[in-house]
Amino acid sequence: MRQFLKTAVCLAALAGTAFYPGVSTANDLELTITAPAGAGGGWDSAARSLQEAMMATGQAKSVQVVNVPGAGGTVGLAQFVGSAKGAADQLLVAGITLVGASISNNSPVDLTQVTPLARLTGDPLVVVVPKDSPIQTIDDLLATIKKDVATAIWVGGSAGGADHILAALITKAAGADPSKINYVAYSGGGEALAAMLGGQATAGVSGYGEWEGQIKSGDLRALAISYPEPIEGIEAKPLKAQGLDIELVNWRGIFAPPGVEGEDLDALKAAVDKTVKSQQWKDIVKARGWTDYYAPSDEFNGFIASETERVRAILTSIGLAQ
């Protein structure tokens, strides 16, 4: 037993020296990407796609994905901020949902505490009504909401998520009190879809991709998308093009831990930027049905700050944040 322990301690000491390799040139980076969600979800597939692209383009020697699910990503973020501080081989994938979750869960950490490397993708949300609905345009919907905000039943994903935020923005634009919105939250776009098709709701919000099939088959009528510009292959026009000053993009980005600076940070930025500009990455984005929404580190940094403020204001107006 004692012998065993001794051996174990020796092995541990030996291994300790091999851990945390110093970053030298970009091409032999050994990275770990934290996906603050379970295997199979949106952030997980973003992390694994990035892993695939970084290895394929030779921007990193090895990339490992670690899943830390929980509380809309705040558990993974807290762990990342706490344990990866200053580690130049650790990355985190996150998105707008994490901005909202940090605020509504009163989390002590948020995305302003990590180092943005690049914004990667941004998917549009879509506003739909059932095919038999008398509502034909976004203006009809606004009029319906204005007439009686309580009976205008919205369905979409979880409370405080991007779907809920967009529904609140539209309610506000209709001139109604967003705190009176009748938003029925489901666990995700799938369950909300059944409620839409069953005709139990006035309008619904979800990621465009999730409801694309029903929109194309005519079971749902898309009124607008939340992306600022028209998107090729999507018939519905942006809210902005229809006279509403609303844009909301379900973006995902990649972050480094706090305290990574200088050469280390530059190496990571370069590796990510080169990966994102590669053909391999573009192919993956296309195959997954994502929309490219790239922004480099500096721009992304300012974006995070403004997005956090904006989301906080909306969540406060619907009573989900203090």
């Binding site: 509380a71 869960n105 979880s158 409370a159 489901y186 989900l320």
Partner: peptide
């Protein structure tokens, strides 16, 4: 856990 409808813990 978080209530799905209101986000209340």
């Amino acid at each position: 856990g978080l209530d799905q409808l209101t986000g209340q813990a």
